[in-house]
């Protein structure tokens, strides 16, 4: 049975550890700079307007999560957790809570600092952010599990940052329609479409469906890799 007490214990430990970790702290505040820079320019009326939010999810949701998981492996502390009464669900939830909470705080901060024009449908926006966080935190967990050290997550994570974080910028350099079409199904793009469509009062069923599929697939892949890599 899943225990709130055990999940809370892991979260509190991660929070205390985070406050003493200069690398994680500096990674965590990077999106604020982007939001600040974004606010200096003229208002963007496309999906790119939401890029700072996506960057928050990538930098905090994925990168911090990857660092937290990789460090547990690197320092051999994950083994200690695995050999405790924690079950797999408690480890996943406990180890993801810090990244999730920090991401939410950072998203709120970048919306405020960047003065990002958000749609009025708060619950749908919250649902989109929640689903996207599941995707990005899962990607971070995968990165952390396949990296041998925390520093390695930065190297392995760079393609993730380019593909999922600043895909909009790259899209302008790509000529192939097919590649652009495929890139359109990436979670960051779908998140942008969803918020844009919400703002314009259009139906958001398709982007929600695509994001949900991404979330399910990323959870399945994470569990698969976790079973394979957790002890090494």
């Amino acid at each position: 049975m899943t225990s709130i007490r055990r999940i809370q214990a892991v979260f509190i430990k991660d929070y205390r550890d985070f406050l003493k970790n200069a690398y994680m702290l500096s990674t965590g505040v990077i999106p604020l700079f982007f939001a600040f820079i974004f606010n200096q320019g003229e208002g963007v009326q496309s999906e790119a307007a939401f890029m700072p939010i996506v960057l928050s999810m990538v930098m905090v949701g994925s990168f911090i999560q990857a660092g937290v998981i990789a460090e547990e492996k690197e320092k051999n502390t994950l083994r200690g957790l695995l050999l405790s009464p924690l079950n797999t669900a408690e480890i996943f939830i406990g180890k993801s809570l810090l990244s999730a909470v920090l991401s939410v705080i950072m998203i709120a901060a970048v919306i405020f600092i960047g003065e990002i024009p958000m749609p009025d449908q708060i619950f749908l926006v919250a649902a989109a952010i929640l689903i996207s966080l599941v995707i990005f935190i899962s990607i971070g967990t995968i990165l952390g599990l396949i990296s041998r050290t925390v520093m390695e997550t930065s190297v392995i994570g760079i393609p993730v940052l380019f593909i999922f974080g600043v895909g909009d910028i790259f899209q302008t350099m790509i000529e192939s329609e097919r590649v652009i079409q495929v890139m359109g199904y990436l979670p960051d793009q779908q998140f942008g479409h969803l918020l844009m469509q919400l703002r314009e009062g259009q139906s958001v069923g398709e982007p929600f469906l695509v994001l949900s599929l991404w979330a399910v697939v990323s959870i399945i892949v994470t569990i698969f890799i976790f079973k394979k890599r957790r002890f090494d």
Binding site: R6, Q8, A9, V10, K20, N21, S84
Partner: peptide, 19 residues
């Protein structure tokens, strides 16, 4: 396999909660 940035107490408290 200890959390090096945390105190002895914080390390043991985590496992008190887990167990």
């Amino acid at each position: 396999g200890l959390y090096e940035r945390l105190t002895v107490n914080a390390n043991l408290k985590l496992f008190c909660k887990l167990y």
